[in-house]
Design a protein around this nucleic acid. Structure first.
Lengths: 110, 110
DNA sequence: TCGTCATATCGCGAATCGTCAATATGAGAA
DNA sequence: TTCTCATATTGACGATTCGCGATATGACGA
């Protein structure tokens, strides 16, 4: 018995949302920075696994609050990050498993 | 002595043009179909290495002539395909070498 | 030199994107 | 309940994209 996917299948729509999300330098930057949550100045070590909160991401990105929130929503809908609500904060972290099988799928396009 | 790149470097601008080019189902389809030039109905075996001409691509895509030409130009500027003019025809083929090192670069983003 | 064919470029309207300020929602604190 | 903070949603508006038809360019054949 095994887990995960042999051959990840993404719908055209899913693929579209992924490429759209990535065709913006700010959103790509978020994704790269989220690889290392501790690289955010105010990140607490105990929250590393749950992710980084929107305000911290916003400050580092230098974008407006609403823009930051929207971009994170896009990344989430594209399946690139996962959001977890805890108290009044929403933490975002990369969805590494999904990103991995996405990279696998890209071999079909590339 | 070796050839190629250890660590492919793409500028932010180049990456942007790549993701923009791919964030359109029609352009992605072109790229996939171009993997096998002989899959185009009127493709001649002797032209396989040089690519497929615009008209053949257009017919298969079902897009307008100008749209097809523009999309191919985008794919070329993104470094995903190469154009070769021969007589009145322009043949397009995938730039496999560049696509390969692009896929390598994506590991940094993903 | 003409006419024709293959391709590229231009110009367009409709749709979407980029980003913001303003406002709404929702959860703790008082 | 009421205030405040973190986040999400809405509305706006210029910039860009989508795909087209019309037109320009460029190469060949007559």
């Amino acid at each position: 018995m095994r887990m995960g996917y042999d051959h990840a299948v993404f719908s055209e729509e899913q693929l579209l949302s992924v490429f759209r999300a990535l065709s913006n330098p700010a959103r790509r930057q978020m994704l790269v920075w989220l690889k290392d949550p501790m690289s955010f100045p105010d990140q607490k070590a105990e929250d590393v696994e749950i992710g980084v909160c929107v305000t911290d991401i916003q400050r580092r990105m230098g974008l407006g609050q609403s823009t930051t929130s929207q971009y994170l929503t896009m990344l989430r809908q594209a399946g690139l990050v996962v959001a977890t609500r805890r108290g009044k904060w929403t933490y975002y972290r990369r969805d590494e498993a999904n990103i991995a099988r996405l990279l696998e799928t890209l071999r079909d396009v590339f």
